[in-house]
Design a protein around this nucleic acid. Structure first.
Lengths: 249, 249
DNA sequence: CGCCGGTTTGAAGAATTTCAAAGGGAGTGG
DNA sequence: CCACTCCCTTTGAAATTCTTCAAACCGGCG
């Protein structure tokens, strides 16, 4: 594989440094974390509801999501994760999983023992604070999604989700122009935003018709960022980036 | 007032002890936190979106909620808080508020400087972990609400919310029988669950008709816990209580 | 008593879901 | 290399849930 195991923690370091000042010692401590890396297919279940994991994961490449299965068999995707995200940090302190975590695309996933992370945080309390902060941003995104799903019409929801993904990709890597990876099926988008597949299809058609976005080969291009933000009632401040993504043309 | 300032932190201690073993030293450290207490009316805005608070609050009595105002003027309540809750712990690490926090009933609110909390956590790392855990449970509730609002029909949502409140009150105080304080207006319930006031009204009527609940003088009585849970597709495990509320008749 | 915020009701309208079926497109096996 | 299959997308039409609008009602309180 093109991927060198020694690079595996880079996305994490990059993420944390984008958000906080890490000193030499802390960087080395993180880089020295023991981990295992797995290259997995789309649909791989990292952890399931009810599990009691002893490790947390880091998304190195690909897209993962957390989701719940409800009583009537319906599925709600509660979050979407890209490289640099640690989607199950909560399992460090909440013994039992209250949701599932799975990959949505072929992915590179790093697994780190809770024990190692606890030790790291004991020896470097500032890192504990930084990871805590990460988990709080996670919570902030949930709140935004609640507003999205609870109170916004379908087109606004989808536009909002696209805006969020764009800004989050940008924050990790500013060199991707107006394109982002976009491998979601329409059913998955519906599961994320509380909509039926059919309706997602119609909404996407509208967004394309109005030249806000275009999609081709699992890549989404933002054709009109200003209008897309407006359509999505989007304001990036809930992402709590230290360096907000600049306004773009 | 019947309330002695020296008791003000009791709900917090009670909450944390329900969830973790605190030793003598830690209890004393928490009890020694400097704070101010405020007796406020319903509708008092603790913090607003955009604020950069230097203190966090503890609900000692009454009900508060966090909410967002969306672009079209709509409002989404993202969480509801009862005694023992610290609704804006996130402001310890996220500088800027991404939502509002206000009381829904006359309340007793304790304010604690971030500085004091940070010092407490430095000196007692275990307490940091315990508070972190609290903020993770907060996140877990958001996830459950996402499933609720995104994928469940209106009646299920309302029933689910009632179940949640019941269990959370119980976890704080097991001596309230099948009654819980219930001072929400129907508009507020709608704002919490993404429904119109009219529809909330109709759903409540149904729940009463089927003898699942009754409401009188801002007190809700659960008439049939088993059926209400079923109607609400409710499973308390997402609340991550160390001692789940027992099954009740 | 009369006001006020909240509740309740009816009826019409809109957004979204469901059902059903046809239309790609990419990979697999023959 | 073609045919087949599977999964996803797209479309149409009917059904449903929920919202909106508008007005009446109700209960507590000044």
């Amino acid at each position: 594989m093109a991927f060198r195991s020694g690079d595996a923690l880079n996305p994490l370091l990059k993420r944390l440094q984008a958000v906080s000042q890490l000193n030499e010692v802390e960087i080395n401590a993180i880089a020295a974390l023991p981990f295992t890396i797995r290259e997995v297919k789309a649909g791989w279940e990292v952890v399931r509801e009810g599990d009691r994991p002893s490790q947390s994961c880091l998304v190195v490449d690909g897209v993962s999501c957390r989701f719940k299965i409800l009583g009537d068999g319906g599925r709600q995707i509660v979050s979407v994760h890209i490289r640099g995200d640690m989607p199950d940090l909560q399992s460090l302190f909440l013994e039992q999983m209250d949701h599932n975590l799975a990959t949505m695309t072929p992915s590179m996933i790093v697994l780190i023992q809770h024990r190692s992370l606890h030790t790291l945080m004991e020896q470097h309390p500032r890192i504990a604070g930084i990871l805590w902060r990460e988990s709080l941003v996670d919570g902030s995104i949930f709140r935004e999604w609640l507003g999205n799903i609870g109170r916004r019409p379908a087109a606004t929801r989808i536009a909002h989700l696209i805006c969020e993904l764009f800004v989050r990709y940008r924050a990790m890597d500013a060199n991707d122009g107006m394109m982002i990876p976009f491998a979601f099926t329409q059913t998955e988008l519906g599961d994320a935003q509380g909509l039926s597949t059919v309706h997602v299809n119609r909404v996407l058609k509208e967004l394309k018709k109005h030249k806000l976005i275009s999609i081709s080969k699992k890549v989404l291009k933002i054709e009109n960022w200003a209008e897309l933000q407006k359509a999505g009632d989007f304001d990036q401040s809930y992402l709590h980036l230290r360096h907000p993504v600049a306004e773009l043309t």
